[in-house]
Design a binder for these strands. Structure first.
Lengths: 336, 336
DNA sequence: TTGTATGCGTTATCAA
DNA sequence: TTGATAACGCATACAA
């Protein structure tokens, strides 16, 4: 600490300019002086003040990352992907958890900009529209992950939820199921509405009817998943589904509860497919068939997209849709 | 962006010093000028460059946070606690996930210091001893959370694992269990060895023998928990435990698998108590009795401890031990 | 009550 | 190949 470029300049008997040159690997410095300077650096244990450097270079090599709730299982893996990818490009990441509070979101953005981050990756629940508009207007580099409003105003990286809903449902169809229920988070939630759409497309393609009785709306929690499943189980024998696609693994875990409580077996009596490939999905019994969202990769691509923006002359705008992948485990079975 | 204190000085027709004064709420400025300056600030949409301020004040108001793996369920909640508490004190947090790589740990420390963080909270698996020694030597403020080596060289905040092992075991004893097994992560892991010690103390206090057959060593994974449980179930009828204390919830989830596979029921045939109060513990069936580690609070206290160090004249050294709390759910029953 | 000048640690410009 | 100097955006000692 407290030891600066000036100290090592004195110690090596050269100017600060020269020290700066060897620090930045400039070619225009004699080998002998380079050695001398490096010796001084080692001897005094100097490490450059990147903040001061950023001041003159107008670049902090820090990006901001804002999430509503890091304990939500969608985020830790995403965070890893972001941190790892950023590190690869020489960037650090400043992290905010807003606890779903819009005021905190706004404050986080303000603070991050005050701290001169070069760009921000964020994932708001309800996109804080005015804030995003302002940032866009300023051409401030920003990427939204898992956007929740379809008419987003900034560059976005999201899941292809329609496709994943389609794939999950289609898999159940391929196993011979005809009465396939869906536990959804509803039309108001972007992922919910998109996965529902995929579900409908798969049914329709297979010539199966869309039955309102078989679609249940709840929120992303085990309790809600359980309630929905109970409702589905209350249908009379002939109307009861043989398979269920739940919008999230956590809701599937709740559905498990309801099914076990009804003395039914998974997948013998009923097949379940979840979505997200939470750690949880491997720990519940039977292991849950689900759809992986490759969150780590999502984070990496988010950083790539952000850097692309930061390096672009003209402000760019892009929407990237990421693939998902079926993970077949033990909670689904063929009924042919 | 690009709009500085100088711009608003010109706009308000005062000196930068005066602007700086109103920015920092100094009393020695006439009300009229204050109004004038604030008007200019609003009009131009100025926000101060905190990095530049930090350069002169020698304080960044940023703390570093390093974890080996944020997807490990111990960390997200801890991270929330840290970010929230830091925010309360006006600090931002720069975050690194090292993926258990010691080289990355070292690089993260170096980078964070280069970026002038005011202190670092870290949680290494194998404490990177030399690094910590160096930091301590430099009087660089640092706090280690969940330390894993008992002879730590820096301030530390950790769980009272001996006590939580004791409390968990004692609870099983209070339910009337006499043959209580323990699935442990072993003597080599700090938390494992401490919880094992608590287990032994509780047995000994109750006059129950310590039986090597009933203690199984594995690692913190569901698969390992399952293997250990299978081993315990292979004991002959009379030697089989009626209750098991597992070192982690995830291992308990694995134990569930083994028990169900053996056509036994929880808690009817065997009681299980876990440790950590993972989200998982509420989602498996039956809901797991466990020990909460109050990770959010742990994060908050970590920040408090760090700030205490940062503000101290003399370098301080402290070890804080945090309480844990029994959470009674459905996986344990009385057998009297 | 306000302004001038200097410095925080670094890089860039220009001249030597 | 090297060095003196200005600048990045801000705060502060000192003078006015």
């Amino acid at each position: 600490m407290a030891i600066t470029i000036r100290d090592i300049a004195q110690h090596a008997k050269v100017s600060v300019t020269t020290v700066s040159r060897v620090l930045n690997d400039r070619p225009d410095v004699k080998e002998a002086t380079r050695v001398k300077v490096n010796a001084a650096i080692d001897e005094l244990g100097y490490s450059p003040n990147i903040v001061a450097r950023g001041l003159v270079l107008q670049k902090s090599h820090v990006i901001g990352f804002i999430v509503p709730d890091i304990t939500n299982p969608s985020f830790p893996e995403l965070a890893r992907g972001i941190v790892a990818q950023a590190r690869g490009y020489g960037y650090s990441v400043m992290f905010y958890d807003t606890n779903h509070d819009r005021r905190v979101e706004k404050e986080a953005i303000r603070l991050l900009k005050s701290k001169q981050v070069d760009g921000i990756i964020l994932s708001f629940n309800e996109a804080n529209k005015e804030e995003l508009e302002r940032l866009k207007h300023e051409h401030f580099p920003i990427v939204q992950i898992y956007r929740k409003s379809s008419n987003s105003v900034v560059s976005t990286i999201a899941l292809d939820n329609v496709k994943s809903g389609y794939v999950a449902t289609k898999y159940l169809i391929s196993l011979g199921h005809k009465r396939i229920a869906h536990i959804s988070t509803g039309e108001q939630v972007q992922s919910g509405s998109e996965r529902l759409q995929g579900y409908r497309e798969a049914l329709s393609e297979a010539g199966l009817p869309y039955e309102e009785d078989l679609v249940c709306f709840g929120v992303n929690s085990a309790a809600s998943g359980k309630e929905c499943m109970e409702e589905l189980l209350s249908l009379d024998e002939s109307g009861r589904p043989t398979a269920v696609f739940t919008c999230h693994d956590i809701m599937a875990a709740g559905a498990y509860d309801a099914i076990l409580a009804a003395n039914l077996r998974i997948p013998d009596d009923i097949s379940i497919i979840g979505h997200d490939n939470n750690q949880l999905s491997l720990l519940i019994h039977p292991k849950l068939t689900t759809v992986d969202t490759y969150k780590h990769q999502l984070g990496q691509k988010g950083v790539d997209l952000l850097l692309e923006q930061m390096n672009a002359e003209e402000p760019t705008y892009k929407e990237v849709l990421c693939e998902t992948g079926l993970v077949i485990r033990e909670s689904t079975r063929s009924i042919e």
